[in-house]
Amino acid sequence: MNKLTAILIIALLGSCLALVRSAYESRRVFADLDRAKLEQRRLDAEFRRMDAERQDQATHRRVERVAREKLAMSNPAQGATVFVEDVLPAEATR
C-alpha cells in the first residue's frame, strides 16, 4: 500500500512539473507567434508605405520632366511611327 502511494505521489509530482513546463512553453510560443504577427503587420504597413513612395517617384509629372530635361527625349514624330495590327484580344493590351 505504501509503495503504491509513493509511486502515485511521484507520478503526480511529475505530471505537475510537466504541466508547469507545458504551460510555460505554450506561453512562450504564443508570445513568439504574437511577435511574428506584429512583425507581419509592421512589414505590411512598411510595404504600403514604400509602394506609395515608389509611386511618388514614378508620377507622370516626374517621368515626363526627367525624360524631357535630363535625358533629352521627345515623342517620336508621327511620320516615323509604324502601327502594327494587334492580333491579341483587346483585353491583353489594356
Binding site: A45, R48, R49, D51, A52, Q55, R94
Partner: peptide, 20 residues
C-alpha cells in the same frame, strides 16, 4: 484597419493610406 485605396483604370493608386 486601413482605408481602402482609390485606383485608376490601370490599378495605379490615386489615394492610399499609409501608417506613419
Amino acid at each position: 484597419a486601413s482605408r481602402g485605396r482609390i485606383l485608376d483604370r490601370n490599378g495605379l493608386a490615386l489615394a492610399t493610406s499609409v501608417a506613419m
